[in-house]
Structures are given as structure tokens and as C-alpha cells.
Computed example of a mutant assay.
Amino acid sequence: MAHAVAQSDRALAETAAAEAEAERERRKVLTGIGWMVVTTLLFVCVTGIVRHVGPAAPAVEVAFIRYGVGIVLILPILRQMMRKPPSRRAWTFFASRGVVHAMGVMLWFYAMAHIPMAEVTALSYVAPIFVAVGAAIFLGEKLQLPRMLAIGAGIVGALVILRPGFEEIKLGQLAQIGAAPCFAASFLIAKGLTRREDPTVIVAMLSLFTTIALAPAAIAVWVPPSWEMIGWLSLCAVFATAGHWTMTKAFQCAPITVTQPVQFLQLVWATILGIVAFGEPIDPWVILGGGIVVAAATYIAHRERLNARRAVTPPAVATKT
């Protein structure tokens, strides 16, 4: 009898412990969603500032100043890193990533200055599509039918936004489409680096080498910036750095398959800010196409998480910091 009672008590204790663990996990996921909502707000502040400053100077100069200010913010990390510097091979990858990321940044800043914020945001969701294709080509990941269908859906979403044949495709749109494979290449290089390097070091090196890569082009077209412009871009760097930190917190608390759909809020905030601050009209096709692309990117993130569990590649969250 005593044995049966002990077993019953143990079962109740295990059930209570399981329920408590489930409740902790639920709260953790909700916290992750909250961090991602904050992330979308911070990143839309970044796009708003770039949109405001954009016409005042060449895109590459604006990008250079923003990243140059970012280096100041990461100086403590750089000092700490110098105590145990990365390998020569890692430096090569850091530099290569800086070059391709700089190309993407130049195109993105140009797009921000020439097309509506909502459109830039919606087209930016195409980047994970290029990552999926690049992972299959360069990292040997299998491109199975479900992922191929998701990639196809993402392309359809981009076509809905661009509407070729019905609307004239603008240079700003082409710039944003061109930025996507550059950012995808940057992501894939970082993905490989996470196998050997600390994510914080990877982020710090990205700021450093992107600034270096942007410098020659920025100097070639340099226009003396106003103090107001420098102030706005300094604030932009703060928002961007904070956004990367809150995004990391979100990924630590909740699976990427939960946080990825929340990124659609950034399109909502961008649309609202575009209307209020810049008088940009609502384009339902951009919202629809953006929704399709986000759905496709979310599914790809889900497949990537499954692959990460099977140790095909490191999880994508490791490089999104």
C-alpha cells in the first residue's frame, strides 16, 4: 500500500514538474516574441532614418558614416578580441564577408532613398530565398521538394511586389533585389564562420570590414556632411546595434520558426511610418507580396532548423546577431 502511495506521489510530482517546465517554456517563447516585436520597431527606425537622410548625400557615403559610427560602438569587443586574435584563415573570411556585405549595404541604402519604405522592407524578405539556394550550391545542403516549393513561393511573392509588365521596374527596386544575394552571401560566410568563431566576434568584424570596404567608394563621391546628418546616422547606428542585440535575445528565447513570422510586423511599421512621415501611399500588392515572401521564408527557416538538428549546418540563429 505504501509503495502504491509513493508511486502516486512520484507521478504527481513528475506531472507538476512537467507542467511547471511547460509554463516556463511558454513564458520564454512569449518573451522571445516580445523581443522580436521590439526588434522590428528598432529596425524600422533604422530604415526611417536612412530614408530621411538618403537624398542628402550619395548612398555609399551615408552607409560609410553609419558603419563608421558603428565601429565606435563595438570598440570594447575589438579590444577584447585582440587578446586572442582569430586565425589567418578567419581574417580572410572576415574580409571577404565585409566586401560582399558592403555591396549589399550600398544597394540597400540606394533603394531606401528612391522607393517607398514598405517596398524596400518587403523585398528584403527575399534574402532567405537566396540563402536557401546558396546553401544547396555551396554548403551541400539537399534542396528537397518542400524547400523548392517554398523558394518558388518566395519568388512569386517578389513578382507580386514588382508586378513586371504591369508596373515599370524602378532602379531602386533593382537595387534592393541586387542587395538580397549580397546579404545572402554574407550570411552564408558567417554561417561557416560560426563553426570556429564566436558570434560576437563575427558581428564586430562585419562592422569593421564593411566600413573598410565602403571607404574607397565613399571618398570618391564624398560630399561634406552636415552635423545634423552625422547626428541622424549616429542614432541609426545605435538603433541598428540595439536591434541586433534584441534579435539575438529573441532567438535565445524562442525558436526561429516562432520569431520569423513576427518580422512581418516590420512591414506593417514601415507602411505606417511611410504614410505618416513621408506621405507614401499604401500599396496592397506590396503587403500581399511581402506576406507571401515572409511565409516562404518562415518555412525555409523551419526546414533549416530541422537540418541544424541533424547537424547538416549550424543553426541560422547563430549568425543573426
Rank of each mutant, 00 (worst) to 15 (best):
V37M: 12
T40Y: 06
T40G: 07
T40C: 13
V44T: 15
C45N: 15
I49L: 13
I49G: 05
R51F: 00
V53H: 09
V53R: 03
G54C: 03
A56E: 11
A56C: 04
A57Q: 14
A57V: 11
P58S: 11
A59T: 09
V60G: 05
V60P: 10
A63T: 03
Y67C: 06
Y67H: 11
V69E: 06
V69Y: 12
V72N: 06
L73M: 07
L73Q: 02
I74A: 05
I77C: 01
L78E: 01
L78V: 03
Q80E: 11
Q80M: 02
R83C: 11
P85C: 07
P85D: 02
P86L: 14
R88E: 07
R89P: 02
R89D: 07
A95R: 03
S96A: 15
R97M: 09
G98H: 11
G98A: 12
V100A: 01
V100H: 03
V100G: 08
H101S: 15
H101E: 12
G104P: 10
V105H: 11
M106I: 06
F109W: 07
F109T: 09
Y110V: 02
Y110C: 10
A111G: 13
A113T: 07
H114R: 13
I115P: 12
I115N: 01
I115K: 05
M117P: 01
M117T: 01
V120D: 00
T121M: 06
S124K: 05
A127L: 12
A127H: 12
V131I: 14
A132C: 06
V133W: 09
G134E: 04
G134V: 06
A135P: 11
I137A: 09
I137V: 12
L139Y: 10
L139C: 09
L143W: 12
Q144I: 13
Q144P: 04
L145P: 00
P146S: 04
P146N: 01
A150D: 02
I151C: 08
G152M: 06
G154C: 10
V156H: 03
V160P: 09
V160T: 00
I161D: 04
R163E: 05
P164L: 07
F166R: 14
E168T: 15
